[in-house]
Each structure stands twice: as C-alpha cells, then as structure tokens.
Design a protein around this nucleic acid. Structure first.
Lengths: 332, 332
DNA sequence: GTGAAAGCGCTAACAC
DNA sequence: GTGTTAGCGCTTTCAC
C-alpha cells in the first residue's frame, strides 16, 4: 500500500516506535531526530493510516450525520454547516438518509456502534415512533432540529413555539382572522410546538378558533392537494395559511394557483422554510426562516466538544437558536 | 470496547480463526459450528469492527463524495442517488465540500489516499485549474457531471452540447431570434459544451449571432445583476435567455422583475436547473432538467463495479445520461 | 533518547 | 474441521 511508518523507520535507520513518537512530537525524542523524521515524512508524503490508529483505542475522526433527506433546503444547509466545522476540526462526515423511515433510521444507527464513527448527529425521521429506541447507542449523540427529548443528549433546537406564535401575530396584524395551520405528517415534536404556539396566539388575540382549521397533511403530494382544495374551495375559506413545513407550503401555493385564489389578496401565506428562492416565488413568500446553517454548526461544535473530552459523560443540554420571520409579498 | 470475535471464541470455546471463518461462512467449517457461532453472534449483537478488517488489505467500505456545494439541487439530488446505491451495497458515504475552490479540492483529495476511503466520486470545482492534478490519486475515481476529460477514469455526463442546442431550437420554435446565453464563472467544460451547442444551433438555423450575446456571469450575485441589467435594459435587448446554470437563471428572473420585463411576453427564459419548484416560480420556468439522481446512481454503481474487482485497473469510459427539456410558462 | 515487543480486532497461511 | 500463528499500521509500555 502507501507509505508507512515502517518504511520511514527503515529508510532512516530508526525503530518504528521512535518514528511514531517523533511524529506525535513526543518529549522523549531529540529535536534532531524529530526534525529528520518530519522532513523525510513530508518529503515522501507520509499520511498515517487513520484506521490503524483507531484500532488502538484512538478515534476514527469520522462522524455520522443521519437525516431524513438531503434534497431539502433545511438539511442541506445544516450539512453545509456541519461539514464546515468538521473540516476545520479535522473530522470527516458520513451521510446517512432515512427517508423518514423510523425502521431504517434504527438500522442505520445500530450499524454505527462498531467503531466506524466517533459520534452521531441526527435529526429524527417523521415516521419514527417512540418505540424506536436509541438506548443501545453508546456513542455521543447530538440531536438537531427534530430532537428526541426523552433521551439524555445535546439538543440543538429553534424557537418553534414562539415562531408559530409570531406567524399568527403577523397575520393578525395584516387583518387575518381565519387562519389555517397546515400540519405535516408524523408526530414530530417540532410540529407540535409550532401548532401550540399557533393555538396560544389565537387564544391570546381572541380569535375564534372555529374559523381556524388545523389541516393534517400527509406524505403524499396529490393527496395533500386534494385535502387543501377541500379546505380552500368554498366561501367560508380561511383568509390565511401557515405552512408548518416547506413542502406543504409549496403545495398550498399550487392549490391556490389552481383555484385561482390570489395571494395575498384572497389569501395570505406564511411558511416555515429555508428556501433561497422564496423571494422568486409567485408571489414572494413570507417565511419563518430557521437558522439551518447555524444549527448545523452548533450541533457539530457540541459533538466535537464532547469528543475532545477524555471521559465521554452524557450531557443533557438544549441549545436554542431563534428563527426569523422575513416578510415578503405573500402577506402584504 | 464492544463485543469482538475474541469474546465469541472464548465463550464458545473455539479459536478466533474458527469464529472468523464461521462468520464468513467458510466451507471448511461444519454446519453445526457455523450455526452455533451465528446464533451466539446475533444474540450478543456482534458487529465486526470495520477498520480492523480494512487493515488486513480488505476494504473500509467507505467512499468519498467530493462536490462544490450540497445546498444546490443538482448535487443534493446526486448525493441522494449515490447514498441509495451505497446503502444497498453496504457502503458508507463521506461528504466533502470544496466550495468551488480548486486548492481545497486538491487538499481534500490528497487527504483521502491513506486508506480512509476505497474510492472517490467527484464533481470538480469551477475554480479548479488544469494544474490541480489528480495524478497522485491511487484510488478508483469516478467523475460525474463536471468531469476532467484529461484523466483516465469513469465519467458520468449528460448531453450538454445537445441540451444547449435543443434550448435554442425550442426558443426559435417560439419565435425567438435574439437569444442570449448566460455563461457561468470558471472554465468548466460542461458550460463550454452547452455554449457550443447553443452556437451551433444558432448557425444551423441561420440566426444572426450579432443579436445573440454571450454574457459572462461571475460568482457574485449583485455583480451579476448589474451585468444582466446592462444587457436587458435597452430596446435592442434579447428576446430570450438561456441560463447555463441554475443560479444565473434565478438572477435573470430577478433582473427581469426589477426591470418590469414580463416573462414570457417581453422575454422568454429557459434554464439548466433541477429545481423541484421550477413550476412554482413566477412564471413557471422551462428547464433543461439534468438527471441528477440517475447520474448519482450511475456514478456510484460504476465505482462499486470497479471496487468489486480483484484487480483495480484504470478504466476510461464515459456514460451519458440525457437531460430533458421540460416546457413551462416562461417560454410559452 | 532509542528500541524491542505486545497488542488493538481481524484475516489468512499453514499446521494438526 | 479446528487451532496456531503471523501480520495489517499504529501506539504504548517497558527495557536498555
């Protein structure tokens, strides 16, 4: 294979252990020898086999990122942040996609405990149930965005409750009184918090909840269009919509286009989203923009902090990074 | 650490080699022993340390994916395809982002030769130069989309030349005669081919090239808007635009909006893009949709085919998967 | 300050 | 069929 410590040792007439120590800048090695070793190693382009060292109880310097999808602006931006921190810290990032399937998520996570990675960053699948347990995972675990609160771990979250609340407040300030909430499929706690914020805001502002339907969307696009059409296609329809995830918000746009409902005249729309091109939509979309990149960075940073410790004790902390409501034409 | 072959051997009163062979279903081991070993291994949840086997000349079963960005619909879709094939083949995917920086790309690729991965899938950075060489790379290398033709390797490409040609043909059939081509920054060969197809189509249809500007865009958004405004804001402006990459196409939309140019009445637009939401834009965008997912799948499949061979000889083949022009409102 | 030797978890010759 | 042994590339006692 490539160039090894053994080769350096032979070429320099040293013992492998001496070379090893020299390369790790040990104090027991003379400055002279170190210099020789370093120079020669650089010259023949030596790079240590990461997995040989990992065998000796050391780290692989690989981390796993487990997410539902990568073709989703939130997750791709988060990965962007993770990768940036990892590259700076000399770690390598492995990607695993669950496609919202809890069983597959479980299988992936289980397969990671054999030393392939030093730690896991995860945003749980919508299709996961509480029965899918992470208890057997012995690796440091950091959840981001879609977290599991029943598991002691580091959690990177955003202010979902408050964001749901603020979305309503914003719509009310624009004159809306019949505000629909589009729920996403699965029992994700982030959706629950957004909905609870939504409900509390309605209550605090004295809005009649009867006129504010909570629409349960599915994981199927055409099914959702059918549901949305049903909600929107009558005179008592909502005057505004809050999309709890990017996909359903886009589907609401499609439904409005098809029904010839003008946004924002007939109906206003605000959506949780991280779309770069929210501003290019017809009309540009008011978004609650989650700090995807920052959340990715925070998650990676938290994991590396844990990994840098000698003793890997379980931390149970939660870090919140706020989302921002960006007003655009869809609620003007 | 976890449970090892040694532990199984002790508990079952067998030699480690016997256990090892049993687990690999060797023919020299009795059915009885195999059964015992398998059963016990399953029971105590044994999972082999991947890096211990990789040390013995075997494979790490890790592959590297090196791309400019992950927050880009083409690359995220490609990764999606790669991951799917990898998961099925029992391989693990490591992600590296170059951010279009050739130097960083070089550093990443160099850092991969020490056994961390068994092979590399790469789409080269726009900022790379021919001086950045992959000659030192001893690993199997598969290029996809943005390929390097000077390096013997497997290349997964799409029909860029033809797509450029077809974009022009489509616009001509819609009555366009002043067709602008928006070039992206960097010297990528995919852009060159698209441009050459564009030029050939103009020629074949007897269009006066003088009225068909090739606009050199940069990597800077506001700079591009300035350039685009200059091209579009006069009476002799183009009657149509071909965006050679997604970003500049979106910027053309912004410029048209700002100049109050109506798409498709005043100007028609077609763009190379993989946007899911092209249909939600204002107006919906006619795209030349590259088969990102399929290209990712093809790249991974080609790599695993190479890896499955005993002898890793260098192949030099090119696989082309065609793009499709999808007509929408922007050229109607 | 340097080197010999053991061992991380696993595989593969080569005995028996 | 099963066990013994050596060794992958590296780190880490422990001698010298």
């Amino acid at each position: 294979m490539g160039v090894t410590i053994k080769k350096i040792a032979e070429d320099l007439n040293l013992a492998v252990s001496t070379v090893s120590k020299a390369l790790r800048d040990s104090h027991e090695i003379s400055a002279d020898t170190k210099a020789r070793v370093f120079e020669y190693a650089t010259k023949i382009n030596y790079s240590p086999n990461p997995y040989a060292s990992s065998l000796k109880g050391r780290r692989s310097r690989n981390i796993a990122v487990v997410v539902p999808e990568v073709s989703d602006s939130f997750f791709s931006e988060a990965i962007n942040g993770i990768e940036e921190v990892a590259q700076r810290e000399g770690y390598h990032v492995m990607i695993y996609l669950t496609h919202e399937d809890g069983k597959q998520e479980q299988a992936i996570v289980n397969d990671l405990g054999n030393g392939r990675v030093d730690g896991i960053l995860i945003s749980v699948a919508a299709g996961a149930t509480d029965h899918d347990h992470f208890d057997d995972v012995k690796l440091p675990l950091v959840f981001f965005d879609r977290v599991r609160e029943d598991i002691p771990s580091t959690r990177i979250v955003t202010n979902d409750y408050e964001s749901g609340y603020n979305a309503v407040k914003h719509l009310i300030s624009r004159g809306c009184r019949r505000i629909a909430f589009l729920s996403a499929f699965g029992g994700l706690n982030i959706i629950r918090y957004r909905r609870e914020g939504y409900l509390q805001a309605l209550k605090d502002h004295g809005i009649d909840v009867k006129n504010c339907p909570i629409v349960s969307c599915t994981n199927n696009e055409s099914e959702n269009l059918r549901i949305l059409t049903q909600v929107l296609d009558h005179t008592e329809r909502p005057d505004s919509i809050i999309g709890s995830v990017e996909k359903v918000t886009m589907q609401a746009y499609v439904a409005c286009h098809e029904l010839n409902l003008s946004i924002p005249v007939d109906i206003k729309v605000v959506g949780f989203s991280h779309l770069q091109i929210a501003s290019l939509l017809n009309p540009s979309l008011t978004t609650i923009t989650q700090p995807a990149y920052e959340m990715g960075r925070a998650a990676a940073t938290a994991l590396f902090k844990t990994l840098s410790k000698k003793k890997l004790d379980v931390v149970n902390e939660q870090i919140e990074i706020p989302s921002v409501l960006i007003e655009r034409a869809s609620t003007r």
